[in-house]
């Protein structure tokens, strides 16, 4: 299995609901807490597994806004795992999820340096590395109704821009989406082979415009205005 996400940049509206849902679930999840620094101070910041950034693509009049949510891509060639000296970082053989064993991590930051996607953040209060778990503590939880065994970000997305599934299975919904909508990977040239894919904006037809007839003469227009204005 190759579990991962497919994220549709065509429908994502950049509402950050997935960011909030992720933080809410995971701050009390297996890796939690996700420490906040000065939450009520001047410059609040903190650990997050998922961040949404917004870009303008192309220039006027062809410009378009794209929102790009990013979390761990659970790369197939995950250098973050190979560089880890303690063995705290590992990739599960059964489903490809990349995790950090909080009891082994020594907080050297090397894995964060090795990740191209900014998926790993050091929790400065705890001293260990934290990252997206693909909600490993939800997706296998048999206490939850089947429909809810999905990552928190996927369930919460109001536009259904996020789909979770097995990218190894050619018939899964995620694989079909990637195939049909030309899903792509971020920075494929680095060779990490990220499992998560993004769907590009759809090509929508431009609004129909017909060349208007030439403007009627001034007298014509005055007459038609008069017709409407004067009620017999």
């Amino acid at each position: 299995m190759k579990l991962g996400l497919v994220i549709d940049t065509d429908t994502c509206v950049g509402c950050h609901a997935c960011v909030v849902a992720c933080k809410q679930w995971n701050t009390s999840g297996t890796l939690g807490p996700l420490t906040d620094y000065q939450p009520y101070g001047k410059e609040p910041s903190g650990v997050a597994f998922n961040r949404v950034r917004t870009y303008e693509v192309d220039t006027y009049p062809n410009n378009k806004t794209i929102n790009m949510p990013m979390s761990c891509m659970h790369c197939e060639t995950a250098d973050c795992v190979t560089v880890c000296p303690t063995g705290a970082s590992f990739k599960r053989a059964e489903d490809g999820i990349v995790l950090v064993d909080q009891d082994k991590c020594m907080g050297c930051n090397l894995c964060a340096w090795a990740c191209p996607y900014g998926a790993r953040e050091l929790d400065e209060a705890v001293g260990t590395m934290k990252k997206c778990t693909l909600c490993v503590d939800r997706i296998y939880d048999e206490q939850l109704p089947e429909a809810e065994r999905q990552p928190a970000c996927v369930i919460t997305c109001p536009t259904s821009a996020r789909t979770f599934g097995d990218l190894d299975d050619p018939d899964s919904q995620v694989s079909r989406l990637v195939r049909e909508r030309n899903g792509y990977q971020s920075m494929p040239e680095l060779g990490y082979n990220p499992v998560n894919h993004y769907l590009p904006p759809r090509h929508k037809p431009h609004a129909e415009t017909t060349p208007g007839a030439s403007l009627p003469s001034l007298t014509e227009r005055f007459k038609s205005w008069l017709d409407k204005a004067v009620v017999r």
Partner: peptide
């Protein structure tokens, strides 16, 4: 290649933080 569209000009509007 990071964001995706490989030919157009891309600039950041919002870092989201």
């Amino acid at each position: 290649t990071a964001v995706g569209p490989t030919r157009a000009r891309i600039k950041i509007l919002e870092s989201g933080q």
